[in-house]
Computed example of a mutant assay.
Amino acid sequence: MTARDVVFPPHRRALYERNRYSPAIRSNGFLFVSGQVGSRENGSPEPDLEQQVRLAFDHLNATLAAAGCTFEDVIDVTVFMVDPASNFERIWRVVPDYWGQAPHPTLTAVGVTWLYGFQFEIKVIAKLPEAAGQS
């Protein structure tokens, strides 16, 4: 097996090393990004739901940028929400600020009962810019 080509966003390496996972891995022209949550600098959840969603997108965008990508390179999104019946509308008010223009990436939304104290998590697959000309 070849070594994983790990991408670390600025100022978050200790968090990933403490929790023993890679924030993102480049492979075969794609970037696979681990779930991003709205954590504060110390790793604790931001209590305000809408701000938590904004922080999750900020962390996602920092990870994408570390690999030379933007959200425009994202082709597949999976979001996890605790209590989506109550939280979906509040979460989706924030999403357009980060989502960009159509055509939008594919989306799978999953309702969950637990996210380690968080209410929202987003993971994506993006096409790396150097691979963008390949289909």
Rank of each mutant, 00 (worst) to 15 (best):
T2M: 10
A3K: 14
R4W: 04
V6N: 07
V7A: 00
V7F: 00
R12S: 01
A14L: 06
Y16I: 12
E17S: 02
R18K: 07
R18D: 10
N19F: 12
N19A: 08
R20P: 00
S22A: 15
S22F: 03
P23I: 12
R26T: 01
S27M: 07
S27H: 12
S27W: 04
N28G: 09
N28Y: 14
F30Q: 08
L31Y: 02
L31C: 03
S34V: 00
G35F: 11
G38P: 02
G38R: 01
S39K: 07
E41V: 13
N42S: 13
N42P: 02
G43D: 08
E46T: 11
P47F: 03
E50N: 02
Q52P: 00
V53L: 12
R54D: 12
A56G: 09
F57D: 06
N61F: 06
T63L: 04
T63R: 00
A66D: 02
A67L: 06
A67M: 02
A67E: 07
A67H: 03
T70V: 09
T70Y: 00
I75M: 09
D76G: 03
D76P: 06
V77T: 13
T78Q: 08
V79D: 08
F80N: 07
M81I: 11
V82P: 00
A85N: 07
N87F: 03
N87D: 04
N87Y: 02
F88C: 07
E89G: 03
R90M: 00
R90A: 13
I91L: 03
W92A: 09
R93K: 12
V94E: 03
V95T: 08
P96M: 08
P96N: 05
D97S: 13
Y98D: 05
W99H: 13
W99G: 06
Q101E: 15
Q101C: 06
Q101A: 15
Q101S: 15
A102E: 14
A102R: 13
P103I: 08
P103E: 12
H104L: 14
H104M: 11
P105S: 09
L107K: 08
G111V: 03
L115S: 05
L115D: 05
Y116Q: 15
F118C: 08
F118L: 10
F118I: 05
F120G: 05
F120T: 01
I122G: 05
K123N: 12
K123T: 14
V124P: 07
A126S: 06
A126N: 07
K127F: 04
L128P: 05
P129Q: 10
A132Q: 15
A132H: 08
A132W: 12
Q134Y: 11
S135E: 13
S135V: 11
S135P: 05
